[in-house]
Amino acid sequence: MSIEVRHVSKRFGDFVALDDVSVSIPTGQLTALLGPSGGGKSTLLRVVAGLEQADSGTVEIEGVDATHLRPQERNVGFVFQHYAAFKHLTVARNIAFGLEVRRRPKAEVRRRVQELLELVHLEQFADRLPSQLSGGQRQRMALARALAVEPRVLLLDEPFGALDAKVRKELRDWLRRLHEEVHVTTVFVTHDQEEALEVADEIVVIDAGRVRQVGTPDELYDSPADDFVMRFLGPVTQLGGDLVRPHDIELHTSPVEGATAGTISRLVRVGFEVRIDVTTADQVVLVTATRPQVQALGVEVGTPVWVRPVAGAATVPAAGPAPDDDLVTA
């Protein structure tokens, strides 16, 4: 294990940011800390980097107890949401910073900076100032700067959070490819479940200062530990006493084993999918289907239907009333 966090707690005044958190981050993998804002994931990352001191607990990095090490002694690369560019230094000097601080020979610094500029595709911007770069370019510069010192682990705090949707997506793919090239143990914080599912080898779900579940994207998606994790990973609806994903519900026009009867109360086509509200005796169930499926069934508003989860669908018992759809899909 590359990073071992044991029983870490951290408060800011009355606010409990981390509540007895223990987690192991595997070597060489891309791990996502996923959770809602204010849930403690950024604090955990900053504790690992030494930018924040835990009130109690220990942090071990590559077998070394780092709990009382200063940030500059931990040899971790840290990438901030808002880039933290050194505004008065050129891109090349930004990247060289860590090496210069370590007093590496000039020739080595020059060679290494050139390598990194190529790695992040900023060769032609070497002599620009950060203010002359786009957000995406600044973030790639920040990544190169963090990688330059060959950190034992790379920590990214909402690295794509300040970028627009398109650049976000590009950088996400690019980070995945970069990780396959460099293979440094990487931990990134995100509140975007799609980003985590798409990029990470492993996901740690954190909420209210606690770890809710750890697992691969498939494990999390297929067997969420509780209703929070299930809701956080994508849209859900409630069918009977269980939470189910809307696309995991099958629609029948005649009664079938284990199905609940209802009537279609709303039917909206959004692009390739059709969203159907089925009003049962005591709830409204959201079902998503494809257009051909709906056409084959020949249903419309007012049609009586029967709904049940498909075989092997992930379900968890609903803990409370379902929150607004907005919240679930956000």
């Binding site: 030494g50 200063r70 940030p71 901030f80 933290a84 050194f86 910073f97 601080v101 370590r102």
Partner: peptide
């Protein structure tokens, strides 16, 4: 930006 100083610290600067 305090983050610039934090970035420098994590890059090894005292």
């Amino acid at each position: 930006d305090p983050e610039a100083e934090e970035a420098a610290a994590s890059l090894g600067a005292g």
